[in-house]
Design a protein around this nucleic acid. Structure first.
Lengths: 123, 123
DNA sequence: CAGGATGGTTTACAGACGTAATCATAAGGC
DNA sequence: GCCTTATGATTACGTCTGTAAACCATCCTG
């Protein structure tokens, strides 16, 4: 069950807010960023419903939507697929790539170092 | 200029072999892995041509194809886009994610550590 | 009660994608 | 020279995507 690019923007809104959101809430949250008509958002919500990526519960004359799949799971399948396709599944290859192409930020480096130490301690 | 999933398999073949390949070469290289008819591969080659992702030079009655875009560039745009969409552009966030979901391999850890040291030395 | 506002449901439609079959053409074999 | 064969070019076609408009039910408001 694939979530498309456009759909993912809707999912991100639902993930960010932790309470169920109406279609209009989603529109508002996306305004300025996606510049979609309300109709578009409604289409996306319906497609996500059909895919069972989200659920809707009635609230008076409207619905409130909430995610059924966890962001972490989504992030993982996307990330793992890229890692496998482009880096032969090697995390370090990916980091090396970024360190060459982009210059890691100081923060990135500090955090990576901390992570390394933590992994040491776990051993 | 987006390279689709199917197209990327063709590109990978052209990137792997460093000399221009005929349509049939590509078919052979993909056999067993993609199980496509020759017609399918030719369609993909043509779409890649149209997108100017590859070039073709005549070789008698056939063409030899070679990539116009560099794999590293492709890898980078794909990776960067994922990093931005899902990790707020933070490389360390991505690594943390993998370290939690997948257990990094010893090799990954060793290489990351080496990379960290190298970054230190560069400073 | 009629008409606009509000929110959901259905339909639309062009372009990308995956996957090919068919058509055309040139070249080599008989 | 004609027929088969290899190859590229054209056409096909269903599905998915992005982006909505049109339609429909309902509720509030004057």
């Amino acid at each position: 069950m694939r979530i498309s690019e456009a759909e993912s923007h809707v999912m991100e809104v639902l993930w960010r807010r932790h309470t169920p959101q109406s279609a209009e809430d989603v529109c508002v949250a996306l305004a300025g960023q996606q510049d979609w008509q309300e109709a578009t958002v409604k289409t996306l919500l319906n497609r996500l419903l059909k895919k069972r990526a989200i659920a809707a519960e009635r609230d008076g004359r409207r619905y409130l939507y909430r995610p059924l799949i966890k962001r972490a799971d989504y992030v993982h399948t996307e990330s793992k697929s890229l890692l496998d396709r482009l880096y032969g599944g090697r995390v370090s290859a990916l980091v090396v790539h970024f360190s060459q192409r982009m210059k890691l930020t100081k923060k990135d480096i500090a955090e990576l170092r901390a992570l390394m130490e933590e992994l040491d301690r776990e051993r």
